[in-house]
Write a protein that binds this DNA or RNA. Sequence first.
RNA 1: GCCCCUUUAGCCCAAUGGCAGAGGCAGACGACUUAAAAUCGUCACAGUGUGGGUUCGAGUCCCACAAGGGGCACCA
Length: 827
Amino acid sequence: MQEQNTSENEYDIVAIQDKWLPIWDDIKPFNSGLADDTRPTKYVLDMFPYPSGDLHMGHAEAYALGDVISRYWAQKGFNVLHPIGWDAFGLPAENAAIKRGLDPRGWTYENIEQQKSSMRRYACSFDWDRVLQTCDPIYYRWNQWLFLEFYKRGLAYRKNSNVNWCPSCQTVLANEQVVQGLCERCDSVVTKKALTQWYFKVTEYADRLLDDLDTLEGNWPSKVLTMQRNWIGRSHGAEVDFEIEGRTEPVTVFTTRPDTLFGATFMVVAPDSDLAAELASGSTPEVRMAFQAYLDDVKKSNDIDRLATDREKTGVFLDRFAINPVNGERLPIWAADYVLSDYGTGAIMAVPAHDDRDMAFAVKFELDVRTVVDTGEDDPSVTKVATTSEGVLVNSGEFNGLPKADAIKAITEYLEISGKAKLAKNFRLRDWLISRQRYWGTPIPIIHCDDCGEVPVPADQLPVELPSAAGLDLKPKGSSPLGAAEDWVNVACPKCGAAAKRDSDTMDTFVDSSWYFLRFLSPNSEEVPFPKEEAARWAPVDQYVGGVTHAILHLLYARFFTKALHDMGMINFEEPFTRLLNQGMVLMNGSAMSKSRGNLVALSDQLDEHGVDAIRLTMAFAGPPEDDIDWADVSPSGSAKFLARAWRTANDVRSEVGVDFAKGDATLRKATHSFLRDFGPLIENFKFNVGVAKVMELVNALRKTIDGAAGPTDPAVREAAEVVAKALSLFSPYTAEDMWSKLGHQAPVALAGLPEADLSLVVESSIVAVVQVDGKVRDKFEVATNISADALRELAMGSDAVKRSIGDREIAAVIVREPKLVNIATK
RNA sequence: GCCCCUUUAGCCCAAUGGCAGAGGCAGACGACUUAAAAUCGUCACAGUGUGGGUUCGAGUCCCACAAGGGGCACCA
């Protein structure tokens, strides 16, 4: 048989892609910045990519899912801001540059161009007029501006502290770069080093960062909320002052269990604290030597040892004594590394009977155990197993008999009168170390002058641009490569004019990503980081989409920035991301894709083989978006097959644009409108996989109608095909656009608008009712949907099958749920 | 060690406390074809990881356990 015009009748995704991409470039359907746009606004944001190489399967999933949401709101008539940019500063660019002897700029911008072109092909609904790159001076000058605003307010400060140090890379590492105590890049054992570094005072916002998580409940994954709560880690308790023999000032300890004060049998101080050094120095020569030896040991230890479970407790007795404020007892003071110098006050009261760690220590060094809370369990002073649960006080003088909560209150209040205690809280959260001794980042806009100290770079001298990397040795050597850029680093002090030096550190790249969502509102402004009125119009982000790997750091830092900017009067909201979706990962045969595992699937190969639309559809259809996708379990060729099937239906329609749908086949119209009823809520609740299944269902119904009695001229066929094209545009925009065109419409289908369901077409006049006996189905019959309970009960009781099933048993109850169900319970 | 999530057909996954199956993959069969591919169509006795409980009724709620995944882990 002779084939007809092939291009007309065969689904050719490559031709379709080539046809529509330039047309979209021309008509810019997703331009969000038109002045006369009166549509309501939505801000949908995907976490921006790091430009390391081309896009991979993980990007493909994340951006496909974000695009479903963005395109959905566009179809619902919203002016959607859906921008994209690049998180372009950072170590990988610098390392690649070192390896190849190139400027990180070249590597970075090449990768950005590569990703940009892949993104366009991938047909995300981005507003391409709002692109930003954090390594552009026009972007990072505002990092510097914000840093200086923070500095003015005391939110940016410099301090000396013990930081993570990789002896091989010769650089400070962020906490997230330390994996199981090893440097993530070279696997060297990470040590601690005392360095003066810049910090952002995140802890000042600890309470608000914690409390405001409640406002996100239901809109963020509960897993992320839990992780943030744990990370901030607020504990309530009391600070209690202990007099120290031979010392004027008392030592304050933080405890969450002031109710156990009578059970304190010793005190422990962090060995690396000033207090420990001072107490030791006031002790005997033997103690001083023992302490110094212990301190050296502790400093040599690393996180691998520290984090080992079941680790033996170590410590050294300082031969000094504290006085228990509740009973005047002398408590020996020990230095031990299970007490941290940077949490609480670096000193604790030890209550071995009711704390596992104190008990382990007491057992090891044969210290007293005194039970002061009766929990009903065996006596810890006998068993040497601490009891930490609720109970009533014993051995606690006038407080005996009080339950835990009351005792905490009573003892704290009792000590408060004499000024020896007060209620207190502590956080696990630490301030954010933002200095990096690296080249490829935002220079810190501070000048160090011998006379004036830290001098902020005046605002009119921003940006402090990164000098060219030419001639600089970027290899890590413990201090920033920028220090060697003589022309750049040596400047006159802005205050006194004397010779001074620029701060040569750069900022952590998490600073860049902490406020980029606001920069999209005016990515090229040289006047302001973002205009207040634009922020009021668009922000906060209505829907944020990204990986759960950023559950703590990025999201916490962005929340901190948002609160700080709020307090600076720049924005009128306090949470940056109203709703959050964490998509899963793309795996291959059960594990993360990697070159070394040999299970890498190249996105570009997949796109070449199956087409963009099929890959995007597969991502959405694979399962719930937060679940991982195992690429071995899904079928991109099946997706392509479905798309061809859907596309063919549009090709088969034989009626004119504007035909009266009301005259169409009732069965198909019902399918179309129940689809319309179900689809929106599914997408809004992130059930994209179910949404795709519903489109498939509608396509099946449509196919059946075209091939059936109603045929391709039936108006309902056109109605259904148009709905399919519009719905499919969220997942597979090329195919949808081509269908829309075949149906006689102008591009873009993306803005054609999903109609509301006509529910009158969906209502059933009759329904199949089920009769159960003791929960088992025994009969069913068709009844009117408006049947009364009595009538339904009557029908059910009259059924022969039901009677047979009941037999001669006595009926206990008849539950009627009209019009669907009757359940007869027997005795 | 503590906390959280998941467990439904060979596989991926649906199912407001009310007939366990929406959709897909793989498979079987049929139509079309000389044949195959493509296309169109037909085909599902799994009793929902295990054991208890609540209920007229449980995949769904509660408890315990198991397996898999994730988070936290000397934070006083």
